[in-house]
Amino acid sequence: MTSATRTSVLRKANKAELAALKDAAKEKFYNTQHGYDQFAFTDPKTLRPIGGMVKGAYTYFTVVYLTEILKTYIEKIELGYTLHELGAQPLTGHSVNIYFYRPQSEIDADLALIYEQVTQEYNAAIEAENTAIIEREVQFQMANTVRLRAEQKARDEQEEADRIRMEVEAELGATRKAVRDSLGAE
C-alpha cells in the first residue's frame, strides 16, 4: 500500500456533511414538542416504547376557561414565548391548548447542546469507521505475510528436497547404473 493510498483510505471530517447533520437535527428540534413524550425511546430488546423527557422548540399551555386565553397569551408573550403555527387547539369541553415556541434563549441553549452532541456522534462515527478500516488493513497485511511465508517455506522445502535428491542420486548413481545395466534398461 502506498503512502498516498494510506492517507486517502481513511475517512476525514467533512464540514458540509456535519452542517447537513446539524440542519437535520435543528429541523427535528423545531418539529418536536418540548416535555414528556410517552413514545420518546424504544426498548432495544422488546421494541416497546419508553417514555421520557424530550427537548423541542415548542410547548403548550392548557387554558381551562376560554376567558383566560388572552390573559395566558399575554403572560407568555411577556416571558419571551412566541405563538406557534398550531395556535390554540380545542382540548375537551371549553379547555384549550395554546402552543408557543419557547423563549429564544432556551432554544439557543438547547440547540447548542444538540449541535455539540451531533458533532460528538459524527466524530465518533468517523473514528469507528477509520478504526475498522485500519483493522481490515492490518488483517489483510497479516494474511499477506502468512501467505508469503507459506510460499517461501514451500520453496525452501522443495529446494531442500532437490538438494537431498541430488546427493542421494550422486551417492547411489553408480549402483543405480549397474542395476539398470543388469536389467537391460537404458
Rank of each mutant, 00 (worst) to 15 (best):
residue 34 H to E: 08
residue 20 A to E: 12
residue 169 E to W: 08
residue 56 G to D: 00
residue 122 Y to D: 03
residue 146 V to G: 00
residue 144 N to F: 07
residue 20 A to F: 02
residue 56 G to H: 01
residue 114 I to P: 01
residue 112 A to H: 05
residue 46 T to H: 07
residue 144 N to T: 11
residue 97 N to C: 02
residue 93 G to E: 07
residue 8 S to M: 13
residue 44 P to V: 06
residue 33 Q to C: 07
residue 70 L to F: 03
residue 101 Y to A: 05
residue 163 R to M: 07
residue 140 F to V: 14
residue 88 A to T: 10
residue 87 G to I: 05
residue 13 A to L: 09
residue 114 I to E: 03
residue 124 A to I: 01
residue 76 K to C: 01
residue 38 Q to I: 07
residue 80 G to N: 05
residue 95 S to A: 15
residue 61 F to L: 01
residue 184 G to T: 02
residue 30 Y to S: 00
residue 127 E to T: 08
residue 61 F to I: 08
residue 167 E to W: 06
residue 31 N to C: 00
residue 154 A to F: 03
residue 12 K to V: 05
residue 47 L to Q: 14
residue 72 T to L: 13
residue 34 H to P: 02
residue 119 T to E: 15
residue 129 E to N: 11
residue 28 K to S: 06
residue 55 K to M: 08
residue 57 A to H: 07
residue 117 Q to D: 15
residue 136 R to V: 00
residue 173 G to V: 02
residue 174 A to P: 10
residue 77 I to G: 00
residue 170 A to R: 12
residue 59 T to G: 00
residue 104 Q to T: 11
residue 32 T to W: 01
residue 120 Q to D: 10
residue 52 G to T: 09
residue 9 V to G: 02
residue 117 Q to F: 04
residue 100 F to Y: 07
residue 25 A to H: 01
residue 111 L to H: 00
residue 4 A to E: 14
residue 159 E to G: 05
residue 91 L to V: 06
residue 158 Q to E: 15
residue 116 E to G: 10
residue 15 K to I: 13
residue 97 N to E: 10
residue 177 K to Q: 15
residue 114 I to T: 00
residue 26 K to E: 08
residue 123 N to K: 09
residue 73 Y to S: 10
residue 91 L to R: 14
residue 51 G to D: 12
residue 27 E to S: 10
residue 153 K to L: 15
residue 108 D to T: 07
residue 56 G to Y: 01
residue 91 L to M: 10
residue 144 N to Q: 14
residue 167 E to F: 12
residue 182 S to H: 08
residue 7 T to C: 09
residue 132 A to P: 04
residue 1 M to C: 11
residue 75 E to Y: 07
residue 141 Q to I: 13
residue 72 T to V: 13
residue 91 L to N: 14
residue 152 Q to I: 06
residue 150 A to F: 02
residue 122 Y to C: 02
residue 20 A to G: 01
residue 18 L to R: 01
residue 86 L to Y: 14
residue 137 E to G: 11
residue 20 A to Q: 10
residue 124 A to Y: 00
residue 36 Y to N: 04
residue 53 M to D: 12
residue 11 R to H: 03
residue 178 A to Q: 12
residue 11 R to C: 00
residue 59 T to V: 08
residue 60 Y to C: 10
residue 143 A to C: 03
residue 38 Q to V: 07
residue 148 L to Q: 11
residue 106 E to W: 04
residue 86 L to D: 14
residue 174 A to E: 14
residue 38 Q to Y: 10
residue 35 G to T: 04
residue 88 A to N: 13
residue 22 K to N: 04
residue 71 K to Y: 09
residue 65 Y to D: 15
residue 40 A to V: 02
residue 143 A to Y: 05
residue 41 F to K: 13
residue 56 G to K: 01
residue 125 A to Y: 04
